[in-house]
């Protein structure tokens, strides 16, 4: 096109900023990961060959965190999708005050994560939080919810689900609203039950929205940082530490920038591979569906 020069110019400022903020860090990490840059080197980068990567491969904590991050992400995203679908179906029904209801449901998503992470800490407080108060009123002893790995993990997932489920619900609601009403009516005239309609019509048509929610939420959950940092600090005993938190600690607490960069780059690569594979699988599933594969 004749005007593409002028149009490229319109994109230039945005493009430059995006490159500076997204691409530069990755390149910088690539470079830093080949260097030692910590208190030991006086915070000056000194080339150290592949020592950082060698260390990463042998780093038990990194791989343990990777496992924990995956487990956290898969569990919370699965719950969010299931719960979000339920809420979306509920909000889809014509109700009075639907707009306000929607806004109120959306509220947890709009609040800063740190604010509500601290809110949860108060709710789970031992012995003064409301949850323990409830336990006591039932005659049970109060419980340190954030002192055992299992309950801490559970409440971290719960807090994440609480915060992000509204987002998923709204995405799916948008999907529901895109389904023409006459499709459902046709099926109803043929005598299909509600569950059959959901299975045979609604869910298949929601697949693009479900995929989108899945990928977006998976990406965010795999990079989970602020919730964990504020709610559990990675504890107890590192049992809820995520990869991002580990990378952050390496940089800001251990001041080992070379290794922190290595951890970040590794986390990014892990994430990219995971999401890339997920995306391809979803795409193939969708293509199979639209080209009339076996129903």
């Amino acid at each position: 096109m004749k005007l593409s020069g002028a149009k490229a110019l319109l994109m230039l400022p945005a493009l430059l900023l995006l490159v500076a903020v997204f691409l530069y860090p990755l390149l910088r990490y690539g470079w830093l990961s080949g260097h030692a840059s910590s208190v030991l080197t006086g915070l000056r980068p000194v080339p150290n060959g592949g020592a950082n990567w060698q260390r990463l491969i042998e780093d038990v904590r990194f791989w343990k965190d990777a496992g924990q991050t995956l487990r956290f992400a898969f569990c919370s995203v699965a719950l969010e999708l299931a719960g979000g679908l339920g809420v979306a179906l509920l909000l889809h029904q014509p109700l009075r005050g639907r707009g306000t209801l929607r806004a109120l449901t959306l509220l947890p998503w709009a609040l800063p994560t740190t604010v509500m992470a601290l809110g949860w800490r108060w709710i789970l407080n031992d012995p003064h939080g409301p949850l323990n108060a409830a336990l006591r009123s039932l005659g049970a002893p109060s419980y340190g919810f954030l002192t055992t790995p299992a309950t801490t993990w559970f409440f971290a997932v719960l807090a994440d689900v609480w915060k992000t489920m509204p987002f998923v619900a709204l995405l799916l609601l948008a999907g529901l609203q895109s389904i023409p009403a006459d499709l459902e009516e046709t099926l109803r005239l043929e005598g299909a039950s509600r569950i059959q309609i959901l299975r045979r019509l609604t869910l298949p048509l929601l697949v693009p929205y479900l995929s989108l929610a899945l990928l977006f939420r998976l990406a965010q959950a795999l990079g989970v940082f602020d919730l964990i940092q504020v709610l559990t600090g990675g504890g107890p005993g590192g049992s809820t530490e995520s990869l991002s938190l580990y990378a952050y600690l390496n940089a800001m607490r251990f001041l080992d920038f070379g290794y922190a960069a290595t951890v970040m780059l590794a986390t990014f690569l892990l994430l990219a591979v995971l999401l890339g594979v997920g995306w391809l699988l979803l795409r193939r599933a969708r293509i199979a569906r639209t080209t009339g594969g076996p129903a």
Binding site: V21, F22, A219, Q220, G223, F257, T267, F268
Partner: peptide
């Protein structure tokens, strides 16, 4: 979709 936290060090 990029998790922000992975950028902070370089930034």
């Amino acid at each position: 979709m990029f998790p922000t936290v992975l950028l902070f060090l370089a930034l």
